[in-house]
Nucleic acid binder design. Structure first.
Lengths: 340, 340
DNA sequence: CTGTTAGCGCTTTCAT
DNA sequence: ATGAAAGCGCTAACAG
């Protein structure tokens, strides 16, 4: 069923039917009602492509995702998508996931823009100087960045205080008396990862604690890495008495390695985890319950979606940025150091 | 930059330029090269909406996802999307995630179809008699079902042998001598969940083991449910000596509850988990390593994407269905029962 | 091999 | 308050 047919059935012009359907004010209310009823009855719904071609607006936002089986597409991404969906569905905005082809990420963004398939883009996982961001600014294409990058031109972003998170975690451990503290975080190069390391270093430096490079790990977020690296760390001399884990997945591996060695969390080894709030994996339910720095991926995504709508409504982007604090929740997995 | 302008710059007709760009054979190779170079130079890329409007084909497939903060959008979905991306990127097919609005799932599907935004749809999480499937068949719209439903009309699907999985798991436990076996699986109503219960019941019945309804749990896949339900189960009389968990998340909770009670996995309580293969959470790395029924969500998705391409190429759907076996891998978390 | 000419289905001036 | 007609940017017959 197309507009023309619907119009014929109603003995109206396409124009009027279109206007009625799209809520234009100049339509007689009686007519509008008649049209709406008919549309419903015949299951009419506008051809999105024609509509967009005519309007130049799309009703979808784009998201570029890794296509390989890398670990970059994990539970974090899932939470993120869920958060976006939650907000965007209100405005009937869909999202288009474009896999990266040929490992050429930037050109996927370019195609996405020039092919006019999306009204705006969400950029995730920025690195310190992110060329995607400068490209999008150059192209004057609407976007919101999830995270931060060192590019000093106005753009919309939302980030959590990663530096503060690890600073708090490390400081808490230092307060407890720990002097050998390790961190196992995400891949190097990503802003969040660098910021976290910064926070960690800052806390240690402030107390005059020397930084042992063997105690700083950057890798994928996974159970396995957490396990392996913890085993390695626990065979170092001196041994770390505390570990900060960058994700819940990592933390699961850390816990396992600690248990495996006959140690207890919160005793021989303290553990603080950054928790992105997974509905299916809850830090407070663990045994022992886990001390965390906590920040919800899902809420961040929902908020980002909101910011995106504002950007699309033409609000100037220099006002659109938020830095979310991260809250340290002390539970049982962290305690004063005891000699192993 | 639009086609017309590009054509003018080249002193060619739009048609020729279009043909050159789209790889039509009748174009002179020299011309084609000239066109391609110019396109690259000016950063031309066709307006997708115009293209689709003209061709009636979209180059995108649709996926309907829950928009609420339900647990339905979890790590399984993430793996699934990653698998799709892997395959679809080869054909430059994007996917459109449409959140469910107003809890009216079926109308989201209808809109997706009539608005011509996607060429095909992937349907996930079928229930025993799934109205989405019958609707799509009625509408004659291309789709592939991930899972199965009791609708006896030809359609493409891929499912894993959920019944076999739980049958194998239960049989293995029975072989080991267990007589009190519990299962904690996904929500009731979903086909996979019902099939799994069927397999479980079948195995127990075959050995003349009575089925205790308290030992059958259906709920979300989460750490917390696993923990709570295991605590409940371990306070039953008689106690189950073995548990089959429907997902890794559940199993994490089960393990925790078992440890917490001073029991060991594979001793007082055996555990078999269905593992969808998460890159960040590996059954064989656990301590004790976990006995699993194993089936990769990601590979299934990749395969489904492939089937979808075949459907779109017009292959008759009655030939397009696959039932994947599920393989039991015995590791350390399952052993003969010992008295608690 | 290249060009001319119609559409694809909708929105939007501009009239009335 | 309604309609006629002109695009939106592209592809696909049909000619040559």
């Amino acid at each position: 069923m197309k507009l023309k047919e619907l119009a014929e059935k109603l003995n109206l012009s396409q124009t009027t039917v279109s206007r009625a359907l799209n809520g234009y004010p100049e339509v007689n209310e009686a007519t509008r009602e008649r049209v709406n009823k008919a549309a419903l009855k015949f299951g009419y719904s506008a051809n999105a492509n024609a509509r967009r071609l005519a309007m130049g607006r799309v009703g979808a936002i784009g998201l570029v995702i890794p296509a390989d089986s890398s670990q970059r597409f994990g539970p974090h991404t899932a939470e993120f998508l869920a958060g976006l969906a939650e907000r965007l569905s209100r405005d009937e905005i869909d999202f288009l996931l474009s896999p990266i082809v040929d490992n050429d990420e930037i050109s996927v963004y370019k195609r996405l823009i020039s092919s006019k398939r999306v009204d705006a883009i969400i950029v995730s996982g920025p690195v310190l100087v992110d060329e995607r961001v400068s490209m999008l600014i150059d192209a004057n294409f609407p976007f919101v960045l999830h995270g931060r990058t060192n590019i000093d031109r106005p753009h919309a972003w939302l980030d959590i205080d990663n530096q503060g998170a690890f600073y708090q975690a490390a400081s808490h451990l230092l307060d407890l008396g720990h002097r050998h503290i390790a961190m196992i975080d995400g891949l190097r190069g990503f802003t969040f990862s660098e910021h976290r390391e910064l926070g960690y270093r800052q806390a240690l430096s402030e107390r005059g604690v020397e930084i042992d490079p063997r105690f700083i790990v950057h890798d994928y977020f996974s159970d396995e890495i957490g396990f392996r690296e913890t085993q390695r760390l626990l065979s170092c001399t001196p041994q770390p008495t505390a570990i900060i884990a960058g994700s819940m997945m990592t933390a699961l591996g850390v816990s396992r390695a600690v248990r495996n060695k006959g140690y207890q969390l919160g005793k021989q080894v303290s553990l603080i985890t950054h928790d992105d709030v997974f509905p299916y994996l809850n830090a407070s339910n663990m045994v022992p319950s886990m001390t965390t720095t906590r920040s919800s991926m899902r809420s961040a995504a929902t908020r980002i979606a909101e910011m995106l709508v504002r950007v699309l409504d033409g609000e100037p982007v220099d006002n659109i940025h938020e830095l979310w604090p991260v809250e340290l929740t002390v539970r049982q997995s962290s305690g004063p150091p005891i000699s192993g």
